[in-house]
Write a protein that binds this DNA or RNA. Structure first.
Lengths: 331, 331
DNA sequence: TTGTACGCGTTATCAG
DNA sequence: CTGATAACGCGTACAA
């Protein structure tokens, strides 16, 4: 364990000078800087983040509240966050909220007690007021929500446009009775995706039928269950827009269980373009909006916040990925 | 920010006493203990892990080297680790090694500089010597490898038995020309799974044919490619044992691309029982060995190590999960 | 531009 | 059983 003090001794300067050079806190003469650089290198000195955290209040770690670390959706985002933070010397601290308000609150509590320099929240159940309050004590970036504050930045990709794209695609192929599989409506993105679906129907002059809409939970099991619900309602449909890929996977299986083939009997479009969607049978047509990129942008926004800048995010527009789960409606 | 010192003041005791109560370092009179407990509660005191880390050398955080944080396989394991560690007040620090020796080394470097109390390595490319050396400076648990040391514990689930189970199942249904999709052989688990396949063949008196074995990389894309390889070799087979589920997903698609149906034309068994395997078309028969549980056990082992105990792991035996990707061979 | 001295919140050592 | 006191390694006013 090489300490800053040892570096100072070897370079023949005071510890503060070393610290200054490390943090760029003040200008230092070239001579001493060279000596210190040399000492750092030969001694293999690495500043101790723990001590740094105590002294300077900065731990160089960013808390990330995810809902389920093992989710294929969030996993992608976490990857993006990790890579982006690493480039700036920060380390992410991942904690799971388990789609549960209490757990989420506890997760953030854990992060704060760990003195993270910032918190990134992916979706979640905490209400805006609580997030705003939290942002008084630590800068926050929230993904998939609409909140704002001095040190609170939020953004989403365009869920509504993406959902509209998917629905329009089905309509353009002649489908008029399009079922909608929805996520939990306490999430803004679920609502936005529903609105995109409404937009497309309205533009095509197709009336909304509540019977065709089933609310679920963004899981494969939920997608499968949704198909059951639809069948029980005994309502006709030739296509499904599943507002995320995971539910689409379950739906495909649910349909198969009832001897309905995709796309021959029912067309289906998903949302997210998870990696797995290339390998389902049939490969799933879906809306792409790099989740990885979203994570990276969230991390980037946090870094801006930390530098005292106003973050800006540049997210690519959602894009339709055509694969094989859709065909022209039979008339 | 309530500090230990404030708690001490309010309880009318010295900081040391509060610290002792917090850590159970020494016996304290009931009276003072009660006063301190009360003070802690009313003040809402939470010890500062950063300060703790500096003073006591323990950061209450465990480094976890995973290969790709967004992998469906590792994701499950990370979940198990997170939950198990949390119960003991530890926090995991996840870093990705990207299946790359240099990255992995750098990841561990990062963890050490963060002063983690222990390191859990999931598979990885570092050689045993290096891991042993590392374990001098920090207790380590390695999953999916065979290494040992004073403060170095490793374990794997029984890959060989699982692979044998899968292959035997295929054989029992009359398949004799069984292709094997392999992961990268620099990993012990890939070798073990291959050996399990050999075991089953040997027990049934079926000769090994190198032509039926294709080495790949545990990804969906790799599975798809493997099927192409097999077809190019122009070798007959009626079943595939894919040594992980992800390759099986790709293989199913690859077969479909050549108009081969699962299980009608080719039976296929996977390994890992990822959640997605229930929702593929058809649902995948596979070998279950709770990845989540493996992660939890790894974390548990680390906690034992930290308590100075010798870890023991109790992993359930791998188990065959029968779904719909397999049928009796046509003769 | 540089050094000194102190503080960050805890734990550990040593008296008592 | 309990309380001073000294670290832990670094950042930062303050002084020079």
């Amino acid at each position: 364990m090489v300490t800053l003090e040892q570096v100072a001794a070897r370079a023949g300067v005071s510890p503060s000078t070393v610290s200054r050079i490390l943090n760029g806190t003040a200008t230092v003469s070239e001579l001493k800087r060279a000596a210190v650089d040399e000492a750092i290198r030969t001694l293999g000195f690495r500043p101790n983040p723990v001590a740094r955290g105590l002294a300077g209040g900065r731990t160089m770690s960013i808390g990330v509240v995810t809902q389920r670390i093992s989710s294929p959706f969030y996993g992608e985002a976490l990857s993006g966050i990790e890579v982006e933070l690493e480039s700036a010397g920060y380390v992410p601290l991942f904690v799971s909220g388990n789609w549960n308000e209490a757990d989420e609150r506890k997760a953030i509590e854990t992060l704060l007690s760990r003195r993270v320099d910032g918190v990134i929240v992916l979706a979640g159940r905490l209400d805006n007021r609580e997030l705003e309050a939290l942002s008084d004590s630590v800068p926050m970036v929230v993904v998939g929500r609409q909140v704002a504050g001095e040190r609170l930045f939020s953004f989403s990709f365009d869920n509504r446009a993406g959902a509209r794209l998917a629905t329009e695609h089905l309509i353009s192929l002649g489908h008029r009775r399009i079922a909608l599989l929805l996520g939990d409506l306490i999430h803004d993105d679920a609502i936005d995706r529903q609105n995109g679906y409404f937009d497309a129907l309205a533009a095509a002059g197709i009336p909304v039928e509540q019977e065709l809409i089933v609310q679920s939970d963004y899981t494969e099991a939920g997608g499968m269950l949704s198909v059951s619900r639809l069948m029980e309602r005994d309502v006709a449909f030739s296509a499904i827009f599943s507002s995320n890929d995971q539910m689409a996977y379950g739906a495909i299986l649910g349909l198969a269980r009832r001897n309905l083939r995709v796309p021959d009997d029912v067309s289906i479009v998903g949302f997210d373009d998870l990696i797995m969607s290339r390998y389902t049978m049939p490969p799933l047509s879906t809306v792409r909006h790099s989740v990885y990129e979203t994570g990276a942008q969230a991390a980037g926004a946090m870094l801006s916040l930390l530098r005292g800048e106003r973050p800006t995010v540049q997210l690519a527009a959602p894009e339709l990925v055509l694969r094989e789960s859709v065909r022209r409606a039979i008339r």
